[in-house]
Write a protein that binds this DNA or RNA. Sequence first.
DNA 1: GTCTATATAGGGATAGAC
DNA 2: GTCTATCCCTATATAGAC
Lengths: 208, 208
Amino acid sequence: MKTRDRILFTTLELFNLCGEPNVTTIDIANEMDISPGNLYYHFRNKDEIIFELFLLFEASISDVLDTQQTIDLDMLDYWMYIHIIFEKIWEYRFFYRDLVSILERNEKLQKRFNRIIDKKSQACKNILTSMNESDILTLRPHDIDSIATNMVISCSYWLNYLQLRHIGKELPGEDLGRGVYQVMTLIAPYLQDEHKEALEEVATNYLS
Amino acid sequence: MKTRDRILFTTLELFNLCGEPNVTTIDIANEMDISPGNLYYHFRNKDEIIFELFLLFEASISDVLDTQQTIDLDMLDYWMYIHIIFEKIWEYRFFYRDLVSILERNEKLQKRFNRIIDKKSQACKNILTSMNESDILTLRPHDIDSIATNMVISCSYWLNYLQLRHIGKELPGEDLGRGVYQVMTLIAPYLQDEHKEALEEVATNYLS
DNA sequence: GTCTATATAGGGATAGAC
DNA sequence: GTCTATCCCTATATAGAC
């Protein structure tokens, strides 16, 4: 593993564990047993490391968001789709811990992060539309936008909320499933009765 | 107005405008045309100012959350109740911009902030229960918890989400109404048809 | 590529005079 | 209560040797 990659990897771990504002370039170098000077040979500054990490996150999540595979799925598929999004966010959760502060330092990051949110929103709308068309749920086209917005907010801030509730302690990765459940809750009331039961079944399987 | 209070007031303004991490004690002193030394005569450190501001926020929002006036209201009342909560949050929005970072520095703050979230959650449950009992909506007791959680998350992170979407620009206070709408959206699908219409009416009145 | 040593800057906070 | 002056610490970043 090349030093440059080790820096990225170590930084990601430390950021996720302690939060980006609490990790200095020296911390990163120490953790890797290299000198700060060496670190700055590979990256111009801390923000460049953050940006590189963002690019990895972007590639990873775009993989999911760009698929057109959101039609004709059953309840378990939808659950898993949301679950995968949560996992990608979990992998790069430090972004979501200090979103505004991190993004305001880098305009390019801002734009591209917002493009991800746009995509996520679109993906949610696609899911809702296709569920609507296959009569799994019934909603007025007018509702789709606001439900999608609520879904995006729940996805984006669930980890932050968890952290808030467990500050100090390490974030429990198991509670990801509860986040998925919260998102599915947003759809639940619109489901036809049979599919409501299907959702309950998936939920009890996953949250046990 | 005593200097101590002017410090609190000025700090609140600057924090809300620029974000707490971007405002130094020097900035605050400069803005007020006093010396940093003077500021430190009135407050031991920056965190003490933050804590005092929190106490003001706590008092202000507890005022709303502690009322037992959540029964037998009509749709407009519920709308206004959520709206008032949003206004209190708006007044102290800097907390919600960097929640985790601010709270992790002060254990007392953490505990008390979480107590506010508990109260907010309880208030939401009370609303849902009372709406349920007066047949405005129908939901299984089992749903109440997860809907309340979604309500709390939407209330807490709506401003953060807005900011994300408009970084750099000043936060548009008018969009508070859209936040209220997002929260009411969570309840909407459970409403009896007549009350759905009532909600739509309130919404169109307030979002125009 | 990697190290050591160091420059630089900014923010938090204090001492002591008025 | 308020000011000036200043200290200290920490984090970022660079220079130059190996």
